[in-house]
Amino acid sequence: MPLFLEPVFQERIWGGAALKSFNYDIPNDSTGECWAISAHPNGPNIVKNGKYQGETLDEVWRNDQALFGENEERPFPLLTKILDANDKLSVQVHPNDDYAQKHEGEFGKTECWYILDAKEGAEIIYGVNAESQKELIHMIDHKQFDQLFNKVKVQPGEFYYVPAGTVHAIGAGILILETQQSSDTTYRIYDYERTDKNGKQRELHLEQSKDVINLDETSPNTKPKYETIQGHSYTQFVSNSFFTIERWIIDGHLDYSKPYQYCLVSVIDGHGTVRTEQQSYDVEKGTHFILTVEDENIEFNGDMTFVVSHE
Rank of each mutant, 00 (worst) to 15 (best):
I140P: 07
Y114F: 15
W113G: 12
L79Y: 14
I140Y: 15
P77R: 13
I82G: 03
G199Q: 00
G105H: 07
H138T: 14
D196W: 01
Y160L: 13
G199I: 00
D146P: 03
L89G: 02
D146R: 05
C112M: 13
I174E: 07
V167A: 01
K88A: 15
Q147H: 13
Y126H: 11
E178T: 04
G173I: 01
H142Q: 04
G108Q: 06
N150M: 12
H168E: 08
E135S: 12
D146K: 02
V167L: 03
G171M: 13
T110D: 06
M139R: 08
T195Q: 14
I115W: 00
K143R: 15
K119T: 10
E123F: 12
D196I: 03
K197Y: 07
E193M: 03
D98F: 07
G157V: 11
K102G: 15
E135P: 05
V93P: 04
I115S: 12
P75M: 05
K197F: 06
N86T: 09
P95S: 05
N198I: 00
V167T: 03
F107L: 15
Y192S: 05
G127Y: 00
K143Y: 04
N86D: 15
T166H: 00
L148T: 06
N96K: 04
Y187R: 00
K197T: 13
E104A: 15
A118Q: 00
Y161E: 12
G165P: 08
G127A: 09
Q144K: 05
K81E: 09
